[in-house]
Design a protein around this nucleic acid. Structure first.
Lengths: 360, 360
DNA sequence: CATTTGGTTTGAACCGGTTCAAATTAGCCT
DNA sequence: AGGCTAATTTGAACCGGTTCAAACCAAATG
């Protein structure tokens, strides 16, 4: 490795040139108040001249803090995740911190490896938003004393966890379902998330709760799992529409699957919301631009990223305490939902009935 | 700052415990082949026991390479950028490198500050994909000897640039416009990008070229600037539709603006593509799921991120040479475009001129 | 004038690794 | 056993900052 690196200016060169000791230069750099004005100015001038930038690497080594945080995200091209990432990046940046972002490629590194990478970088904290792992593997993540903030866990799965962030998933499932019930829908298909995510269970619980309140039995045929991807939403929606007694509305566990469902509905020759209502979850930035504009549950994803970073920044490393936060969600009513059409079901043979349009 | 950090295990502790010198431990860690098998195993065992993870910070300080790259991206929640970011993250990760991501918040840090942050972190290279700056400011970015890869510049605006990545924007604008011309459209509205981005100019050049080939004069009323955001696309499309002699088709400089335009079209009581055709650019992952599925120009954004990182990884720091790459684009024909309707225009009073259909 | 006080400055130790010339050990041959 | 070579191992210097006890100096005080 014969690197022909030009010799970088160091604090000692500055010191020599300004005729002071390195300690003094260091004090100037850190705005310590024990430097005489004249000295400070002289040093600053030399720093200017050389365009000297102190090395954060060296600083990190001696202070044992890097001013860098880590973010582990499952799939950054999911708009939900990218909003979250934006919240994290901007918040870290405003606080003068860097953010090392690792994403789980489909066949990529697993969580323990990712955490290991970050820990060896001495990041000051890690925000983990990627898919949950079985608690048994999680609890022994080798993360030294690096504080962790995690999303979508009921209980901290590791002793380093200083923050837990949850969306109120159950309320989300409940609100979505209730909205449809109020519009008169009684057969509501549920396109859920990946089974072993706790958040998937919580969403489904909200769905159940809403049905129970109306004394509607849960039809297991109508409740499906999903993959959080548009392709999966499409598949599941097709299957549900092919049922002998198909639903008049869908709740999907995220907006991407709602997009897929929308496509399946259109391909079935049906219109949303006239023939079939649909409510998603996430409120991705494009939800209002698709056609019809998607009724969905808004999740404050940007805020989640922001709070996660804030928790890490404010973490008290001497006596850490666990912070919990439950982020509220709310229904955003757009135009993919309407009252249940009269005289349904209408999918099969019967080519009938002029439906009344949704009357507000 | 009374940090109660538990004393981290260091290479010296491992050395003492294994009864060897630190040099030997270092050799074991780096898989150097000058360690006797017995010694190596003994050391490795001690490492296991203590769950020792060598510090990358310390390593960076002595090797002067961090194994970390920097990515500066304008707005990570734009699906185009997030795809690019995913390419960059995954590629860096596969090579065992970290990626420090900085994003330009609307009111955020400016490029020189971001670069400075990364340079002080001693990142091994920086991929800059954010908005272009005037060359004058760029050329004096203080980036020591950190190699740079930049997107959407015709010429390297800084001496550290070792790679330039461009999409073939002109071909994109040309292909989009030609597609519409072939469908018989003659009045084609152009919703462009931000004026001082070179890429905006190139796209517009493609639009011009296509029109010129058909000997169609450019109507300055039909050619507008934009902001790359859905809201802007909506605004501009509305304005174009309100023209006395409105276009029968739109080309938009990115898909987000196409979404906005789609909304404006729908609100005008028109249907896409029956009444009005639309072609976007980017081919964001949701382009095929919106309704109608969007005809657009595919840009390999993931690939761009991937290549950018690869260039940095492979950069020869001893005698750097400039790499250039022009990424091809292609039309993805979906369902937002159709032959020009007979007997238009149909918006305003004047019900005139039967246009010849595009003969192909 | 001797002493105290307080603001400045210094210089060496330290952070946790890598590197490499020199020292040590092991192996082989005559 | 002695001599020679190759394989291991060592230990100190180094990377570029921070930190802090001690030294220094000037002004103020008794």
């Amino acid at each position: 490795m014969c690197e022909a690196l030009l010799p970088m200016t160091t604090i000692r060169q500055i010191a020599r040139e300004a005729g002071v000791s390195v300690g003094t230069v260091s004090n100037v750099l850190n705005d310590n108040d024990n430097v005489a004005l004249a000295t400070r100015e002289r040093v600053q001038q030399v720093i200017q001249q050389h365009n000297y930038r102190p090395s954060n690497v060296a600083r990190s080594l001696s202070t044992r803090r890097t001013g860098t945080l880590g973010l582990i995200v499952s799939n950054i091209s999911n708009p939900f995740s990218s909003e979250l990432a934006r919240g994290a990046i901007e918040t870290a940046q405003e606080a003068g911190h860097g953010l090392l972002v690792l994403g789980a490629a489909p066949d990529g590194l697993d969580l323990p490896t990712q955490v290991d990478t970050l820990v060896r970088q001495w990041v000051d904290g890690i925000l983990i938003t990627s898919e949950p792992l079985p608690d048994s593997r999680l609890s022994q993540l080798p993360c030294g004393d690096t504080p962790l903030v995690m999303m979508d866990y009921a209980q901290p799965p590791h002793r380093n966890v200083i923050g837990l962030i949850n969306f109120d998933w159950e309320a989300a499932g409940y609100a979505a379902t209730t909205h449809l019930l109020q519009l008169g829908h009684r057969r509501i298909g549920y396109i859920g998330g990946i089974a072993d995510h706790p958040s998937s269970r919580w969403r489904a619980q909200g769905y159940h709760k809403a049905l129970q309140e109306m004394a509607i039995p849960v039809d297991p045929m109508l409740e499906c799992g999903g993959d959080f991807l548009a392709a999966g939403g499409y598949q599941v929606a097709r299957a549900l529409l092919a049922l002998p007694n198909p639903p008049t509305a869908f709740v999907t566990a995220n907006d991407l699957m709602a997009l897929g469902a929308l496509q399946a509905i259109a391909e079935g020759g049906l219109r949303t919301p006239n023939d079939l209502s649909l409510v998603g979850m996430d409120d991705i930035p494009y939800a209002s631009f698709i056609s019809p504009p998607l009724t969905t549950i808004h999740l404050p994803s940007y805020r989640a990223g922001q709070i996660g970073i804030q928790m890490l920044l404010e973490a008290d490393r001497t006596h850490p305490t666990l912070q919990r936060i439950m982020l509220p969600t709310h229904l955003v009513e757009r135009r993919s939902t309407a009252p249940v059409p009269k005289g349904f079901p209408r999918l099969r043979p019967d080519p009938s009935l002029p439906y009344k349009e949704g009357s507000d």
